[in-house]
């Protein structure tokens, strides 16, 4: 199966890194979209469908929490599995994200293999 993925992070370096991990994890990527913040992500999702979203939290403009909130409030978009990639490992943040519907969570810094495990766990549900 070929996946369409959206990576949301204000850091171009981290977007490159995450994209590379997804590719090296053996997922066939037919499209990999990138957005610098939540607003850009929502605009893109207005015209493109994706199979998974990976998002940072701390971003200028619309941050990851607000993005998650907007996704979960939308009947169609809430079904897209979302993985949060963030430096914030505090309990309060993680609890909030879980209630906002994040399906997976990984804290920076992480090993590429750990992200692969989260991807397999989250996207594994999509194998037809």
């Amino acid at each position: 199966m070929a996946y369409r993925v959206l990576i949301v992070d204000d850091s171009p370096a981290m977007r490159s890194f995450v994209k590379r991990v997804i590719e090296l994890s053996g997922f066939d990527l037919s499209d990999c979209f990138e957005a610098g913040d939540g607003a850009e992500a929502l605009k893109l999702l207005g015209s493109e469908w994706v199979d998974a979203i990976l998002t940072d939290i701390n971003m200028p403009g619309m941050d990851g929490e607000e993005l998650l909130g907007r996704l979960s409030a939308d009947d169609l978009l809430r079904s897209i599995p979302t993985i949060v990639i963030s430096t914030d490992a505090t309990r309060s943040r993680m609890d909030r994200l879980a209630t906002l519907g994040a399906r997976g969570y990984i804290t920076k810094p992480f090993l590429p293999e750990d992200l692969r495990a989260v991807l397999e766990h989250t996207l594994g549900d999509l194998h037809a």
Binding site: P12, M14, T87, D88, A89, K108, P109
Partner: peptide, 17 residues
């Protein structure tokens, strides 16, 4: 520069956590 910015972001987030 982009990578060093991300390095700073990760170190800062890790310290504050």
């Amino acid at each position: 520069g982009e990578v060093v910015c991300e390095l700073a972001n990760m170190i800062c987030g890790s310290v504050l956590s």
